[in-house]
């Protein structure tokens, strides 16, 4: 008899333990990087969905029905901000019928808002191409940015799910410790890369270059978001032939055509970088993203 009751009580306890897991915070991340970060920090207390994959250009994403459905049930939207997702995220938020994720709500988080951005234009005009008034939004390739964003995201998770605050703080502290250690490792390994001259496609490696001290000598896009004309490419060949860069950087989502053409003309290797979690088989999570980025960059210097 007592044995039975004990079993029932233990069952109830089990249910009690299971219940919060069922009520996991639903996180809609706009990129695989924020999805990976939310998973690192939230563990099994969060249920994370990434709106995009590493092969998509986050400027150009469809406000697909599946994403509207995810926005409807989300407790937290983790976006890049700085108008990177301006062409599609507002539609998801507006169509969601979900007050919790409206901008300025605790359920709406922008990574870029936690940082001071690079490339903040002193004036903006669309003749300058796809410029972002608040600064360059491609912030994920500097691990120090990730650390700051992780701090703020941990705080936000604790606000949204106060019962799990201790859990998030513990995970956050653990992540920060591992992350700072990894940064030390990456920076030591990447020391030979300092001063490496690179050509980029879009201005989306700015934070990587800034972090590792790479020297960006040219961009294949004449202006952000503007594809190069034949004339511009010819000019670039002339300019770069005179002083060839060590390497051309390409992101997983970029088209290979213009890059390979230019690489052939000036006889410089192209390095395909993951750019986002999932962009290469090795970039399985945020640690893998930086490990692989540095491995691939170091590969060119050997």
């Amino acid at each position: 008899m007592l044995h039975r009751i004990a079993r029932i009580l233990s069952l109830a306890v089990c249910l009690g333990v299971i219940a919060p897991a069922e009520a996991a915070l639903k996180v809609l991340a706009t990129t695989p990087d924020w999805a990976a970060l939310a998973t690192e920090l939230g563990g099994d207390h969060v249920n994370v969905y990434s709106a995009t994959n590493a092969f998509q250009d986050v400027h150009r994403v469809e406000a697909k029905p599946s994403l509207v459905a995810r926005a409807r049930s989300a407790d937290l939207v983790v976006a890049t901000g700085a108008e990177l997702e301006v062409g599609w995220l507002p539609v998801l938020v507006q169509e969601s019928g979900n007050a919790h994720i409206q901008p300025a709500s605790p359920g709406y988080f922008e990574a870029a808002a936690q940082l001071r951005l690079l490339d903040v234009p002193s004036s903006v005009d669309r003749s300058m191409g796809d410029v972002h008034p608040q600064g360059n939004p491609h912030v994920q390739l500097d691990p120090h940015n990730i650390a700051s964003i992780a701090q703020a995201l941990t705080a936000r998770l604790s606000v949204l799910d106060p019962a799990g605050a201790a859990y998030y703080q513990a995970r956050g502290a653990d992540f920060q410790a591992r992350w700072q250690q990894a940064i030390g490792r990456w920076e030591a390994r990447a020391a030979p890369l300092k001063g490496l001259s690179v050509v980029v496609i879009h201005k989306d490696q700015v934070y990587l270059c800034h972090w590792l001290g790479l020297r960006e000598v040219a961009a294949i896009e004449p202006k952000p978001g503007v594809p190069p004309s034949a004339g511009y490419l010819a000019e670039l060949v002339t300019k770069l032939s005179a002083a060839p860069p060590r390497v051309i950087l390409r992101n997983a989502y970029n088209d290979t055509k213009a890059v390979e053409w230019l690489a052939g003309k000036i006889n410089v290797p192209v390095v395909a970088l993951p750019f986002s979690v999932g962009g290469t088989p090795e970039a399985k999570d945020l640690f893998g993203l930086f490990d692989d980025t540095i491995n691939r960059l170091l590969g060119t210097t050997r």
């Binding site: 940082l115 001071r116 500097d142 700051s148 703020a152 030390g184 920076e187 300092k194 001290g213």
Partner: peptide, 29 residues
């Protein structure tokens, strides 16, 4: 969170400072 982020940044910067080749420090948020 903003304050913590600044502290973390400062800490990491000082950590880097002792390590090899520090990048130019990022300003606070």
């Amino acid at each position: 969170a903003a304050l913590e982020a600044r502290i973390a940044q400062l800490e990491s910067q000082s950590a880097i400072a002792s390590a090899a080749s520090p990048p130019p420090p990022l300003p606070p948020p």
